[in-house]
Amino acid sequence: MSAVKKARVAFFDFTCCEGCQIELTNLGQDVFLGLLEHIEIVEFREAMSEQTKERIDIAFVEGSFSREADRARLEEIRARSNLVIAYGACAATGGINALKNHTTDYKKFVYSKDANMPHLDSHNALPVSAAIKVDFAVNGCPMDRNEFVYIVSHLLHGKTPVIPNHPVCVECKKRETVCRYHLGDHCMGVIARAGCNAPCPADGIPCEACRGFIDQPNEAALVKVLVEKAGFSNDRAKNKSRMFTANLRSDVK
């Protein structure tokens, strides 16, 4: 297989911190320039001012869908893109934004008297796939830049990206990271989708499942080990997976 002609790639952002786009600029010169041999970036707000209305081969959409007003723009992106990739946790699952989905009073606490200003009006933070068809996802908060390159490589060849459906535990064990539970800590790695090579536990912090759940997470067992092995209160254990995976929980409304 020889390399294909340069793919036209664009980045768009919705409800997010744009950290996943920033993460792309951390790829390093060699990798970034290497990628540019194969892709042409036609829109990328973090690094260039040009915008396009042309057809796009691969659209990376960052951020969650949290305002009805964004639907038209998402549909427009979909209509002129061959592939739409949910880029980062917010786009893929709603991400950390979905923390708000189960609260009702946050606006009052955060914005006080301005709580009812119209620009603050939003619905539940949802994955981009709640508004438009999404072909693939680059998971993670932020997305893993090595995996991004890996996924782009697949897409350039017309190959469906191989994204693991096993928990982060597999990757911790392969690199012999001491288990957080063996250090008296908690960890969400048992139900979290791998593919990041488990950097957080290796750096001494628990996995927060920013890449979402595996397809069949054992939620009941998670609550059980958080209580029994990590010493969480029952409530905290039950709420724990709302941080990054609120929209993937079996109790999602």
Binding site: H166, P167, C169, V170, K173, K174, G189, V190, I191, I214, Q216, P217, N218, A220, A221, L222, K224, V225
Partner: peptide, 12 residues
């Protein structure tokens, strides 16, 4: 019942 299908038992 409490298995996470995490594969740790295999990997180690």
């Amino acid at each position: 019942l409490d298995c996470f299908s995490c594969g740790t038992c295999n990997i180690v």
